[in-house]
Design a protein around this nucleic acid. Structure first.
Lengths: 137, 137
DNA sequence: GTACTTGCAAATATTTTGCAGTTAC
DNA sequence: GTAACTGCAAAATATTTGCAAGTAC
């Protein structure tokens, strides 16, 4: 059974075509779209879907732990399909947002906990710079 | 000579009471206020100052490298007086945003550069959790 | 005096909300 | 059948912009 279906059932949430569509749109988008981009991607296939529904679905998915909301300093939020917390790379020229997989960063939270007595539940690491293709051009 | 004055002169920008006020408001706020909070703080003393001016001043200060814009996932930006990039701690209960000074994090950028071929110019690290006073209560 | 800056108001952008109608179960 | 969900429109919130009046130099 698909992960989304399982998690929705678990949370006593209805399985609707809209939610499946939003979920798949995110899954197929390596670009970490914002809500409007998701909406635009779906609009041709689902002419009656509304932006509000996209927002509501994304909010639900975050509560269920299916996706991660990231904010890289634009004035809109981006949504990331991968639920595990990982750093992001933002190109300051072409604005693309990439994932960064670097194991050594996962231990940062415990360093912070030790130092501050906070109970850390989530972290967001963003690195801003110029990507190889932009710096090459 | 005060730092603000020096930097403004350097950038051929006028030294105005409003800019000085915004700068000092930030300097005196360990809470990393957002634009509206800065405005509210100034309003009693400067009844005619406008929110637009606060925004314009903050934008200018960022361009001049005097302050840092941070975004911890709210839908407003916060502004940080300290220009050097450092991690932030956000309490998910009381919403306060603290600075974290931890030297070992400064080398992260070079790790990322090596791994990705990005030329990193800025980083934002945010750790979310429950602060000691909230978890104690 | 002039170029920069301010402050107002309007515009823009993003996200949230209320509610009537619809749908999954 | 009922509670949950959708879609529309309006509201709320945050930020930007245009421009006339004001101010630093």
């Amino acid at each position: 059974m698909e992960n989304l279906i399982k998690v929705l059932k678990n949370g006593s949430c209805k399985i609707t075509p809209q939610r499946i569509a939003v979920y798949n749109a995110l899954k197929d988008s390596p670009t970490h779209p914002n809500a409007e981009a998701v909406y635009n991607k779906l609009a041709p296939t689902y002419p009656t879907i509304s932006l509000a529904t996209v927002y509501k679905s994304l909010e639900l998915f975050e509560e269920l732990g299916l996706i991660q909301v990231i904010n890289v300093g634009e004035n809109s939020f981006r949504y990331d399909f991968i639920a595990t917390s990982h750093p992001h790379l933002i190109c300051t020229k072409c604005q693309k947002v990439e994932d960064l997989f670097e194991d050594s960063f996962s231990e940062l939270a415990s360093v912070v906990e030790e130092k501050t007595n906070y109970k850390i539940s989530k972290q967001q690491l963003s690195f801003y710079g110029v990507c190889p293709s932009c710096s090459g051009a």
